[in-house]
């Protein structure tokens, strides 16, 4: 039997792929994931309408796509926010950004600020790395664990 951690990893992998529905059967485990649209409950102030439910039910009946091994190679890893707050790329409105794409930063070097409760929390690099991509815009809210940068260890 698969361990919970393995299952979680598998589900995360499936989740990251753009597949609507996946069915896997392997030693004693049958797994079905379905991303076909459900009635949008999260739309502000609007109850699910008959049309929307019918629409999504219709989508559910679409033919099941066969599971195809698909590997997406993304270079580097993601650097996530250690706290919830507001992301700032620079120490002040007129200051230069802490880092730009392509910059090579040292371990413990400040790479951005996440402001929480008027406190400017300096976020530092965990290891020597190169910034490959910035995944968020200046001044935007960030959640705990939200990817901020794509980085490559150097």
């Amino acid at each position: 039997m698969m361990k919970i951690e393995e299952l979680q990893k598998l589900l995360q992998t499936i989740d990251s792929l753009s597949l609507i529905r996946v069915e896997i059967e392997t030693d004693g485990l049958r797994l079905i994931t379905d991303k076909s649209e459900r009635p949008a409950l999260t739309q502000s102030g609007s109850a699910p309408t008959v049309e929307r439910i019918q629409q999504s039910l219709g989508k559910r009946e679409e033919t099941v796509e066969p599971f195809v091994e698909e590997t997406i190679e993304v270079e580097g890893s993601t650097f996530t926010s250690p706290i919830i707050g507001t992301y700032y790329a620079a120490p002040g409105p007129d200051a230069d950004n802490y880092v730009e794409v392509g910059a090579k930063v040292k371990k413990d070097q400040t790479i951005c600020i996440v402001e929480a409760m008027k406190l400017m929390n300096e976020v530092t690099a965990e290891e020597d790395c190169e910034i490959l991509e910035c995944l968020i815009e200046d001044g935007q809210p960030v959640e705990y664990g939200q990817p901020l940068f794509r980085v490559k260890k150097v």
Partner: peptide, 24 residues
């Protein structure tokens, strides 16, 4: 809003993080 890790003191018991989410 994801406000912290599974540890209660980091999320559901963390007043600071909850109030940041209130602000955002």
């Amino acid at each position: 809003f994801c406000i912290g890790s599974k540890d209660l003191k980091d999320s559901y018991l963390n007043m600071n993080n909850i109030l940041v989410a209130v602000g955002l």
